[in-house]
Write a protein that binds this DNA or RNA. Sequence first.
DNA 1: TTCCCCTTTAT
DNA 2: TAAAGGGGA
Length: 478
Amino acid sequence: MDRTDTALVWFRRDLRLADNPALTAAVNQCARVIPLYIHAPDEAAPWIPGRASNWWLHHSLCALQRELHQAGAKLIIATGPTLERLQHIVRQTGATHLFWNRNYDPTSMSRDRDIKQRLTGQGLSCQSFNANLLSEPASILTGQGTPYKVFGAYWRTVSGQLHQIPPPLPPVRRISSPSKDLPTLSPGDLALLPRIPWDGGFHSVWQTGEQAALERWEQFLLHALPAYDRLRDFPDRDGTSRLSPHLHFGEISPRQLLWGLRQQADQSPATVTHLERIHSQLGWREFAHYILYHSPRSANQSLDRRFEKLAWKADDEQDAELQAWQRGETGIPIVDAGMRELWQTGWMHNRVRMLVASLLTKNLGVHWLQGARWFWDTLVDADLANNSLGWQWSAGCGVDAAPYFRIFNPATQAKRFDPEGRYIKRWLPELTGAGKNVLYSGRLSDEPFDYPLPILDLSRSRRDALQRWERIKRQQRE
DNA sequence: TTCCCCTTTAT
DNA sequence: TAAAGGGGA
């Protein structure tokens, strides 16, 4: 090792010290390491991170700052443009190396490619790593050499290769760093927190940062995994891992999860069904990133192009309905409960996400992008790959999509997955004294609850939607 | 081409 | 019980 080498570690969506290949490589290769975060939200346009996401980022940066401090380094926080900032810090510090972990969304990829090219040209050694996916999207292809289009075949192939995945890297405990002398912004300077304090409900639900992510994972393995297959669909139960925001910001890595599950399987082989279920959840996350990698336009357009011509509602037609949906005032209790959970906590149970998406795109005929944009702004786990795949799946216009004739009936779903209405009443306290009919299907005009009447007729809107979708399906695929 | 298979359902 | 479809080997 050349004792004069100084490395920059450019943190992005990998806000952790454990299983962080870029950080580990920097510490191994260079005498001095400077951890760096560059805030440049505009560079993610048109998907500039939303308000809930920013809330999380603020607290996660604070946590990372603490972790790095304990390891003996100061996190340098700066603002973009990223390339110029990197060049400035390289001059300022005499850095010889730059390390980062790859993102796979199209905007990041093209920016990072450019940065790598420019800085390499200026004599900097740039190295990037895969830290956030189990497999490189480019390497998984069908027998014909084309990208997979359905989850099942894709996951079979990836599953077959999982045994090759190395164990997670141990946390970096000691960083020798000259960064103490460098100027930095504080997370607060990035103005990520709300000016109006709407985040009260967030604090009671979430703990951010690497340590919190690890603790949640431990808790999940201990309590939820043994009944995962049975309870994960019930939104009032703590049956899911709730790791999505931690995963999005890279506070924990899929490799850590994979190896944790592997250990669990050795300890209690009885939990095989549950293990397979949670594995396939990891698989869907993986698949979403894979699809966005191979079909970059899927973030902004229907993958099945016929759907761009579907009779989606025009802006002026949809305003009132979209707003009712966003505010949780559609009069359909399970849907409104979900939308209010989202608003108050920055998160929604996945079963309910499917229901509210089905209602918006199919019953209300509002373009899936409107829903995707709302989720993008309000979810703490907002992730371009997962969000695009989820919405296109729901609308029936993406890869491996839900069949167009599958339109959720919110009443049936509520009855099945929230039979006592506990979830509904928790988020819609105005329905506390309501009977099951009201809880499942909404209020009739002579009932006194301070809750809106349904803004739509479920069965008629269902029939209309089927007709619209059927017309589209009859057109030939391009 | 044929056959198997499909996260998340409807009446 | 049926499946208005379609991907992959």
